[in-house]
């Protein structure tokens, strides 16, 4: 279990983290969401020993993370960084070795990951000669080549083309199935929703919502209905008790029902307007959950 426990961090007058706690189980993919400046990067840098928490700690397998523990973590910093003049394979071998891989293991891992990330023909090239997208892939490979027990990735998908996104997502899912806890931050919430077993939303220095996307939806409370009634006049549903109109566009209506409201009463009201072409419960997307959590 990778545990972030009560992290507090203040820069000057700005209390960035006010007690951030969450846990990621082995084999779990954890999507770390939050607005810009919410403190995602600070949280990850504390885990990697690049910033020191004022209070709280990060534990792996029950023990506070120290230097030896961090060598077993694959990390991708928000500020990408590689040696510009070093060749791809040399560079990746170096990072694998720094993480404690033997020379033979490092060579094998470098061959494997450059192949999987589509860099096989770039092994002998200097990093500065590569396109930004390929530099990004090398950066990912640097986090993966040491065969880490834990992956902490800050915005790993930003800057990748769709093919790159897919190959990275496959790699992460594969690592995750092998029992590695994966934490990654992202603003691409559709991707987080698709990939992650669990999500944590960071706002105002705390985790304001966490759990599976299903749990977040359940926590959200209100049910939503989408009803399409092409012939209805605007405001047709306003009179139904316990119903709030979220949006309405030429008969395509999204309604929010409070706990007491009766969806059958809504259906009856819809039928009274004429044809009903669509009537279904609507699952809020992670984007909407995120907006709700951050705004609350």
């Amino acid at each position: 279990m990778l545990e972030f426990d009560g992290l507090v961090k203040t820069y000057g007058d700005n209390q960035v983290l006010q007690g951030v706690s969450f846990a990621v189980a082995p084999g779990q993919m954890f999507g770390f969401c939050g607005s810009n400046g919410a403190g995602k990067t600070t949280t990850m840098r504390i885990a990697m020993g690049l910033a020191r928490a004022d209070a709280g700690e990060v534990r792996w397998r029950g023990a506070p993370l120290d230097d030896a523990g961090r060598q077993r973590i694959g990390y991708m910093p928000e500020e990408r960084g590689l040696y510009p003049k070093m060749k791809v394979a040399d560079q990746l071998t170096y990072f694998a070795r720094l993480h404690g891989a033997s020379s033979a293991d490092a060579d094998r891992a470098v061959a494997e990951w450059t192949e999987r990330l589509g860099l096989a023909d770039k092994r002998g090239e200097r990093v500065e000669k590569l396109s930004l997208g390929n530099q990004q892939r090398v950066q990912l490979a640097a986090a993966l080549v040491s065969g880490p027990e834990v992956l902490i990735l800050d915005e790993p998908f930003s800057g990748l083309d769709p093919v790159g996104v897919d190959s990275l997502a496959d790699a992460l899912v594969e690592r995750c199935r092998a029992g590695v806890p994966v934490v990654f931050s992202s603003h691409q919430l559709d991707l987080v929703e698709r990939l992650c077993d669990a999500v944590g939303i960071l706002a105002r220095g705390r985790i304001v919502a966490s759990g599976t996307v299903g749990e977040l939806r359940a926590q959200e409370g209100g049910r939503q209905l989408r009803v399409v009634v092409p012939d209805a006049d605007p405001g047709w549903a306003a009179a139904v008790p316990g119903v709030r109109v979220v949006s309405e566009q030429r008969g395509d209506t999204v309604l929010e029902l409070d706990v007491a409201a009766d969806d059958q009463a809504v259906l009856a009201a819809a039928l009274r307007t004429g044809r009903v072409t669509h009537f279904a419960r609507r699952e809020p997307s992670l984007v909407e959950l995120f907006r709700g959590a951050v705004a609350a």
Binding site: D67, P77, E79, G81, L82, F95, L98, H99
Partner: peptide, 9 residues
């Protein structure tokens, strides 16, 4: 910025 990656190990 490679220093960040180095100092994480």
């Amino acid at each position: 910025r490679v220093v960040e990656l180095l100092l994480s190990t």
